[in-house]
Design a protein around this nucleic acid. Structure first.
Lengths: 150, 150
DNA sequence: GATTATTGGTTGGTTTTGTAACTATCAAGC
DNA sequence: GCTTGATAGTTACAAAACCAACCAATAATC
């Protein structure tokens, strides 16, 4: 295995390449939280995200979630069905525009949301504790900018 | 859709939650580069990553790549086969340990590597230009720590 | 007010990924 | 040197993601 020379103009460190680095950090830092919603609650990634949106914002349509979380509509559609089958949410046809369904959490959906939200909050604090308060704030700002969320 | 109150102890903004934020930033910031290796070169994500390692470090085994890039061995195995079918790399059985194969790029593999590497370098610079030099360095440091790469 | 375009949402088929189990080779202990 | 246990890499099957086409309802155009 050849020696890595940082000054070599032909050298390029994949491990400093932002898209790669972001992806590795995202994967690694979601592992522990994933174990909770997946193994303990039997939920998928998109399901948890949709659950959160409804838990946090109350009533939304699938379209609202697509726009706000930038999740593809087929994924949202399937997550909604999954959550409905678990009786975590119910759909209400909008009588003004009958294409649309208003989604909201059931009582048990809200209960699960609150549990997971608290776990997420603790977990986030744990991750952020690896940096100073200022660094963590800067990190979130930079990530939001990279994600096109500002 | 309810109003978001940051001071409400029951409120939790998914869009500030690091695992979510990291994921969104990773997806968004790899889109443009993905179009290049995917549409222009017909490569998959893991294939590009493996190609890079061989282009950058010369000769490696699949195991070296697994350890260095933290990519699962089945993904590496499939990417190696894909690259081999495109004649971008060839395998050489290690006679000292016949379980191992030394992997290295062919001439055309090296040519593609150099093209993609230059594109990646430009693209990374473009992403980093949204921050000051110090901020970008800090960002990479923090991501490396979150990814367990330090 | 019939026709066309757009929008919200779902479905079907193909790729990719994830997970386990598997083969082959080597290493260690006895 | 034979058994047991690791290690490098592959394969098979299930779970998930991706993409395109689709339906139904509404909006826009003439």
């Amino acid at each position: 295995m050849a020696h890595l020379d940082d000054d070599d103009p032909d050298t390029f460190d994949l491990r400093s390449f932002l898209p790669f680095l972001l992806n590795q950090a995202a994967e690694e830092s979601s592992l522990e939280f994933q174990r909770v919603y997946k193994n303990r609650y039997g939920m998928l990634r998109t399901e948890w995200r949709v659950l959160f949106h409804l838990g946090n914002y109350g009533e939304m349509t699938a379209r609202d979630i697509v726009l706000r979380a930038k999740i593809h509509k087929t994924k949202v559609s399937r997550a909604v069905r999954g959550l409905q089958q678990r009786r975590y949410l119910h759909r209400l046809r909008d009588e003004n525009d009958r294409r649309v369904e208003q989604l909201s959490l059931t009582a048990s959906g809200q209960a699960v949301y609150r549990e997971l939200r608290d776990i997420a909050r603790d977990y986030d604090a744990k991750l952020a504790a690896r940096f100073t308060t200022g660094e963590a704030a800067l990190l979130r700002m930079m990530l939001r900018r990279l994600a096109g969320m500002d």
